[in-house]
Design a protein around this nucleic acid. Structure first.
Lengths: 226, 226
DNA sequence: CCTACCGATCGGTAGG
DNA sequence: CCTACCGATCGGTAGG
């Protein structure tokens, strides 16, 4: 239900999804009207409702599109790198990159988590649980081998760390004031600063591994972004 | 469902604030109608608008009430305990307690951060910046003394850790699925589990201090709640 | 993809 | 603290 056949104009449906994502992220689901979304695309409200039968349908599609994008990136890194710290780093990098390269993803997800906690539970189950379990098992193995702090609560760590990344990206525009000294950013969607990316990764690592592993933690940079 | 007081009924205005906080937290500012808030209190909409001139006024009051509560608890712990790790623990405990004893506080704040990042910036400046600076200075001192990891970015750590606590409490109902194996919680406002409280504190500590300090980190319990 | 229009609900006011 | 009512806007439909 995503890709239309060629020949037509630049896929109106995906244009609608783009602006719907943007406006849902900025104003919330109830706060973003179909009228405003349609105007942003350059069409009228009834035309939007031709592509998506209802606002609820649009919401579902926005979420599906985002999660399918996520489901596309995760298996790749899960099987690519060998297990161990390399895989841990790959997952961390990819997760932070996924959200920070488009903060609207984090905002829409966070809003869904707040607006409809029970309704998205199945989606969490489907899209997060699998690799959350992989991370949890990895932690337990590390605890047996003595590389990871035995005091870590694997599932709680995973849940909290996802939360940390998600919300850091989502509310950076608001909470970033603590960081920025005198800088005034009028942009509602500022770039997520590398400085925060680096600190997020450092926090995740150092709250997990027993050996400070200064060699890797001090690596010249924090995020391979090129 | 509320406790009445001898003579008058228990301050209608504060009743309105209570239910407004609850409904803003659950449905967001635009999603919670004045009609529904008034009905929850047991009055009609125009009566509510006698106590609060507008919905915007109600929003401000909800936020003010919450932040004044916060401003009441913070200076106390800032001056009470001596500096050092004791003060660090006191701040961490009090912050986690403040939000986890009423998750609606975290939800309302998180929603404001998402809905109006620029508008609440002054409030962050006023209510968070001061003790965020104290924590930042404490971290820098610890780094000079060699007790805190020199790789820590003080301001980024503070911002991220606030974020971690705030969002963990706020979206626990939604993201908690990663934790709960088979348990089904129908409650929209479940109790924030001690297990998560403990892991949050552990993460905050271990991502900061150089010496694992097993003695304190393994302390019999995670939150002094009595 | 449009114009025209629907009932429902929104925040807020009049007036008592 | 209430009933009655306001214009504006909401999601959605008719019909082309």
């Amino acid at each position: 239900m995503t890709d239309k056949v060629p020949g037509k104009n630049l896929d109106v449906a995906s244009q609608i999804l783009r602006h719907a994502t943007r406006l849902f992220a900025a104003r919330g689901f109830v706060g973003a009207s179909l009228h405003d979304i349609a105007e942003a695309v350059g069409i009228r409200k009834p035309s939007l409702l031709y592509h998506f039968r209802s606002k609820e349908d649009l919401r579902r599609s926005v979420l599906e599109q985002m999660l399918s994008h996520w489901s596309e990136v995760i298996p790749r890194i899960l099987h690519a790198s060998s297990s161990g710290e390399a895989q841990f780093d790959a997952i961390a990098d990819e997760t932070i990159k996924f959200f920070s390269e488009d903060p609207d993803r984090a905002r829409v997800l966070l809003r869904e988590l707040l607006d409809r906690p029970l309704e998205i539970a199945p989606l969490i189950e489907l899209h997060v649980r699998p690799w959350a379990k992989i991370l949890g098992d990895y932690i337990r193995r590390g605890q047996l081998q003595g590389t990871i702090d035995p005091l870590v609560d694997p599932e709680a760590w995973v849940a909290s760390t996802i939360n940390l990344v998600l919300s850091s990206v989502a509310v950076h525009a608001g909470l970033g004031r603590i960081l920025a000294e005198g800088k005034r950013r009028k942009s509602v969607t500022p770039t997520f600063p590398p400085r925060l990316v680096h600190e997020l990764k450092r926090m995740a690592r150092s709250s997990l591994f027993l050996a400070p592993a200064a060699a890797t933690a001090t690596a010249p940079d924090g995020a391979p972004e090129s």
